[in-house]
Design a protein around this nucleic acid. Structure first.
Lengths: 208, 208, 208, 208
DNA sequence: TATGAATGAGAATTCATTCAT
DNA sequence: GATGAATGAATTCTCATTCAT
């Protein structure tokens, strides 16, 4: 009746993999622009040049496409923070984290906006992820940072707000991209300026 | 035929003022949570305990309610930055701006999310505002900040990214409120911690 | 609770008479342009600068306004034909009928269109009138015309189709006014030309 | 997303052709009885035993169905007059035109009423057609008729009013069909009588 | 796999009418 | 008499989803 869906682990054929990927690519664009409720299957089908029923052959519904996107996104969402090495040089580690987050914003702005849409709408589908996966990781890294503070390796800062500020300032360039582009003088590269600015900012903040 | 609508400037009766305000209050909640497309008149009508046709007696349509909210919002959106005094003490002025923005996030989180929703969706209704009103003001204040830098009164920073970072970090507490609350240890007040953190951050960044 | 309506024969005050007349004038315009179903109370109320509830103070509903108009119209609708004198000079009588009908089309085009709308829509509200009042009168006058034919006073014609043709050609200038105006050379008066043409036509048709 | 609509010229499938035709047939009935504003999609859907959304699968909206009907109608509307041959025998040509118009009224009364409804309502959708296509043709044929008059081949008549009278008297049998049937003695065929009457009328009018 | 066809549930909006003053 | 306020019942149209092939 209907082919491999998320969770059914039959072998995916080449063409299935291709089409599922095309659908997800299209859906990411649509969902990130309009939010879940504001997006329609028609838009997604049009964006990947498939018929609506064919899209539904690959995913059981609009919700399922969205879930698939979110799952993939969340898998990658934690990586940059997870990489922060408790045994590394604190300021370098933090700057490296900032860089990775900024790079993700630059390379995957639609994913960032998909996430932002979810949170803005009260995180109905990812509350569990935030409450557990994300919170556990943040708690862990906050403890690391607190350790660095106590060891006098970085200046006194609240680790939670430090992390929030990194998220806010990096994701801002993806989520508010339009505003950033409209306001920055023409020809200015947002990410280049952002990188320099953020380095300065965190170095001055964290240097003990 | 239908009650005074935006643009018709007959004197508003008591009951009209009350109902229009109730509708806007309800609509702000609904729009800020679901975005324009994701919101329905049913939700708005339910949220203000009115019948749908009665809501439409006061506003000519969903779009008109949204427009009214946005117009009111934009009127206030520029105020905090506008207050930044070129003749004041630079670091105090910037910190005061941060405080005002943070206070707005705390007092008007739904307005912040309404704005965020608009930007996330490509700013279809407020591009003009950003391109002109907001950009002009930012340009003006960026020049002021550059003046302060050149005068050696604050450290060397890019004024545009400085402003973006203030927006990002303050609005984050409203726009990503759920995430912030889910991650911060129980009993912690986000805005108190944020205020302290941001002061430290900008003092260390800007002190020459 | 509510003032004199059709059928209630209390004395009408000056202002009531004025308002009822204003409503009917407005409604005639609206109904004749849009038909019964296509017209709205809003349009009527706007056209007579009254509030909708006030219109309904004078007439119990949309249907009642329409009924009142139709009743008045039908009262006058038969008059021209009724005037045709069995004892008059046949051709003069018929030409006089044509003239009266043409004059009515010119003076009361909206009434003609109101009637045309009714007939076009299957005469739901005036079937009785047509079936009885109008048919009886037509039968009577058809007999008169047949008498004239038999007496050799006018040429041999079917009296029913003769009457239909008078209706068709005179009402046409009211009902299809737009088309007539768009097609006639600029500056031509439709009714002047029509009068001449119809005289010629009926004289040549009827002269034995 | 949706089936071929007017203007998209993909090959129509069998079932599409069938359904589109069924919708148009139903809509013609409904629109010709109630006018555009007075007709509802519900009526049309019911009249062709389809669900409302399915009707909208074939036409993008109520307006589109109406437009399709009107376009088809106008295509055929000019044909009878166009056939009038400048080189034919004048009276025969005119009588033949009358016959064709009368036949159209008999065979396509709903189309005639659709047209009448449009004109009655001020020709909002076909003003252009009348002002250009129809007027040009009438001007052309009026010139032909004038030629015949000047050549002494037919009696002196105004060609425009001649044409109007043909329209009026033939379309009358379709547009006012109900009235005609209610008034004519039972068992009388309207079109038979009309044909005879009109022949007599135009022969006596036009014979020099 | 893929798609044309179909639909029930809902969305925005209109409209005749009623209520209350 | 007059009107601001309110609403139930349509009405047009959209959309996720299903059916049949």
């Amino acid at each position: 009746m209907c082919a491999n869906r998320v969770g059914e682990h039959k072998q995916e054929t080449r063409i299935q993999a291709k089409n599922r990927a095309a659908i997800k690519r299209a859906a990411l664009k649509v969902f990130s622009e309009n939010g879940f409720l504001g997006s329609t299957l028609d838009q997604i089908a049009a964006a990947c040049s498939m018929s609506k029923p064919n899209v539904l052959y690959y995913f059981s519904g609009k919700e399922a496409i969205h879930r698939a996107l979110l799952e993939e996104l969340l898998d990658n969402w934690l990586a940059p923070l997870r990489h922060m090495d408790p045994d590394g040089e604190p300021i370098s580690e933090i700057l490296a984290y900032v860089d990775r987050k900024l790079q993700m914003a630059q390379e995957f702005p639609m994913e960032s906006r998909l996430f932002a849409n979810e949170i803005l709408q009260g995180a109905p589908r990812i509350e569990d992820f935030i409450r557990h996966d994300l919170k556990d990781l943040v708690d862990e890294k906050a403890a690391v940072i607190s350790g660095w503070v106590e060891a006098g390796k970085i200046a006194q800062v609240d680790p939670y707000h430090l992390i929030f500020s990194i998220w806010a300032m990096t994701q801002h360039y993806a989520d508010f991209e339009i505003q950033v582009r409209l306001i920055l003088p023409d020809g200015t590269d947002p990410y280049e300026g952002a990188s320099t600015y953020l380095h300065t900012l965190f170095v001055s903040l964290l240097t003990p």
